[in-house]
């Protein structure tokens, strides 16, 4: 069976523009998305809103790891989120949205909702 991917992919920037282990913010439709490049070149996308401060700042957090999980720490009050699942690792039960993201022909693309 073939499942057609009917989602809209939005090109947000060239992959080369992303610094390793740093994030950028992008507008995808009306949504603010934080896009991160991992150390090995992997790309992650989370909602940019920090649920603790209500400010749209997660893209400006420090990227790192906790155990084997790649993470970003909110620049506001340092709560740590998984880049893979969006879950807050410091406050169980709190999470930010995760967006599908891919690199095609050197372009970073985020899937619309």
């Amino acid at each position: 069976m073939t499942v057609l991917d009917v989602r809209t992919w939005t090109v947000v920037c060239r992959f080369d523009l992303l610094l390793p282990e740093r994030g950028v913010a992008a507008l995808v439709g009306d949504s603010q998305v934080a896009i991160f490049r991992g150390f090995a070149g992997e790309v992650y996308a989370l909602g940019n809103r920090d649920p603790f401060s209500d400010a749209y700042v997660l893209s400006r957090g420090i990227v790192g790891s906790r155990g084997t999980v790649p993470t970003v720490a909110s620049p506001m009050h340092k709560q740590v989120f998984s880049l893979v699942t969006g879950e807050c690792l410091d406050e169980p039960g709190i999470a930010v949205p995760v967006y599908d993201v891919r690199v095609r022909d050197g372009d970073v693309e985020v899937a619309g909702p």
Binding site: T10, V11, V12, C13, L17, L19, V24, A25, A26, L27, Q32, I35, R49, A55, Y56
Partner: peptide, 17 residues
Amino acid sequence: LGRFVSFVNAPDAPDPS
């Protein structure tokens, strides 16, 4: 200087929040 943008795909659009 290129890092000082609101959005990577809309560099001058102010954060609406």
